[in-house]
Simulated assay, not measured.
Amino acid sequence: MGNGASSSNGGCCGGGAVSSGHGDPQGHLVESSLTNSTPDLHTSTNHGKLPDIAELTRPDASAAMDFCSSPRSSVSSGARGDTDDSDNYTLASAATTMSSSINLDKFSIIDSTLREGEQFATAYFDTAQKLEIARALDEFGVDYIELTSPAASPQSRADCEAICKMGLKAKILCHIRCNMDDARIAVQTGVDGVNVCIGTSSKLMEHSHGKDMAFIKAKAQEVIEYVKSKDIEIRFSGEDSFRSEFSDILQLYSLVDRLGVDRVGIADTVGGATPLEVFDKVEALRKVVSCDIETHFHNDTGCANANAFVALEAGATHIDTTVLGIGERNGITSLGGLMACLMSTDRRFILNKYNLEKLGCLEQLVAKIVSVEIPFNNFVLQKLD
């Protein structure tokens, strides 16, 4: 890889076009029909049941099933040439309903380039680079910037404190383990909130911290009560929660919800979740907690962006991203990729909330620092007209 991002976007931050990729060969922005497209996310009527929580896993999904069956049969008959106008109207109406099913009024981006992104193979951010990336993320308009735990090293703590003093509009979070030492250090840095994490899958309970679910519940209560007493935000997340016993996750998250957390997090730590699984589990979680739901998807099977999108459809409110999707192994949900997906849902909302013209500069900055080229097939967004 060359040291530096490809510059075929036509110059950093130039012009009024928005592209998370390279556009056409002449450097023009590709005009797509994203606003009228809707992914077929519910093509199966057999989502399966989650263990021991059958009464929680499926809502009254008659409307969704109507969308799956009636429009699909209309398409089939259309292939035979006997579709009438009413069938086409039904299909269009269903598609419109599905595309507006995300409640973007509660949607927030938690960008983790300065935490998850630090685990990328060639990411070695010094303090000056962290400050530059944080400022660029803030100019783009992300709602939160997540940092590495200040308990990780003296330098991580100093960098966290420096970013907290920048006066950014974005809220500053740090990612910590579920223990009191980490929580106390985090609070002292001046962050706006902490993202608490502890392994909940059987593998992590055995090989990571060696504790059982009873210990996790007790420790979670101790940390949550302490952080809440300091009047800052707190998210509680089970690491590897998609491979955890999901009935345990629902019970644990119901407890921390009652304790007053701002968000619970559900993490596909190994990147093996499928969109239908994500929809089912987030939907089930939405039925048992009243707090916000944050999601974190790794991209090992290429599903991170799709998983983030369907999580929002199922009731999630916060999505973890990184610039260019960098992160551990092959990364997580891409900031640009998520923007491309959401432009098809509510173009006006996204254009008003985020400074998409800043995305190209942001991607070039991070690509240069981590010494990668921007992919030739990077996501392309629509024009700002």
Results as ranks from 00 to 15, higher is better:
Ala220Trp: 00
Phe349Arg: 07
Glu283Met: 10
Leu56Val: 01
Phe246Lys: 07
Val270Thr: 11
Ala220Gln: 07
Glu283Asn: 09
Glu146Asn: 04
Ala186Met: 11
Ile53Val: 15
Gly331Cys: 05
Leu29Tyr: 05
Thr90Met: 11
Leu250Cys: 13
Met166Asn: 06
His298Arg: 13
Thr83Gln: 03
His42Phe: 15
Ser69Pro: 05
Glu328Val: 05
Ser20Tyr: 03
Ile369Leu: 12
Asp40Lys: 15
Ile145Pro: 03
Arg80Asp: 13
Glu222Tyr: 13
Leu356Gln: 05
Glu225Val: 14
Ser19Asp: 01
Gly4Ser: 14
Ala162Ile: 04
His22Arg: 10
Ser101Cys: 11
Thr113Asn: 03
Leu342Met: 12
Asp60Lys: 09
Met343His: 09
Gly48Thr: 08
Met98Trp: 01
Ser371Trp: 04
Leu104Pro: 05
Met343Thr: 01
Val187Ala: 09
Lys203Cys: 03
Glu239Val: 07
Asp320His: 15
Ser244Arg: 04
Ile216Pro: 00
Arg115Ile: 03
Ala306Leu: 06
Ser93Cys: 12
Ala17Cys: 09
Asn36Val: 15
Lys169Asp: 13
Leu285Asn: 06
Gly302Thr: 13
Val264Phe: 03
Ile133Met: 08
Leu137Asp: 06
Lys358Trp: 08
Glu222Ser: 15
Thr333Glu: 01
Phe140Asp: 06
Leu34Gln: 11
Asp159Leu: 00
Tyr354Asp: 12
Glu55Thr: 04
Arg72Pro: 02
Asn378His: 08
Ser93His: 12
Lys217Gln: 08
Gln129Glu: 14
Asp181Glu: 13
Leu351Gly: 02
Thr274Leu: 03
Glu313Pro: 02
Gln221Val: 11
Thr321Asp: 02
Lys358His: 15
Asn9Thr: 14
Ala311Ser: 15
Lys165Ile: 00
Asn3Gln: 14
Leu34Pro: 00
Asp82Gln: 12
Ile198Tyr: 00
Ala17Met: 11
Asp346Ala: 13
Ala340Phe: 01
Leu131Val: 06
Leu168Gly: 08
Glu283Asp: 07
Phe242Ile: 11
Lys203Ser: 05
Ile319Gly: 00
Tyr354Met: 00
Tyr144Ala: 01
His318Pro: 08
Met213Cys: 03
Thr113His: 00
Glu313Tyr: 07
Arg258His: 13
Ala183Glu: 10
Ser108Phe: 10
Asp212Ile: 11
Asp126Ala: 09
Lys130Thr: 00
Ala121Thr: 09
Lys230Trp: 05
Leu342Trp: 02
Leu276Met: 04
Leu362Met: 10
Ile249Phe: 07
Ser86His: 06
Ile293Gly: 07
Arg115Trp: 00
Arg58Gln: 10
Ser208Ala: 14
Asp240Tyr: 02
Asn179Lys: 09
Ile53Leu: 08
Asp24Arg: 13
Asp346Trp: 12
His42Val: 09
Arg235Met: 03
Ala64Val: 11
Asp85Ile: 06
Pro150Asn: 05
Glu294Ala: 12
Thr269Arg: 07
Thr301Cys: 08
Asp257His: 01
Ser33Asn: 15
Asp111Met: 04
His209Trp: 03
Tyr354Phe: 10
Asp385Ile: 11
Thr333Cys: 12
Glu31Leu: 11
Ser33Asp: 14
Glu363Ser: 12
Gln382Asp: 14
Phe279Ile: 03
Gly238Met: 10
Val282Pro: 09
Ala79Leu: 15
Leu147Arg: 03
Glu373Ala: 14
Cys68His: 06
Ser99Gly: 06
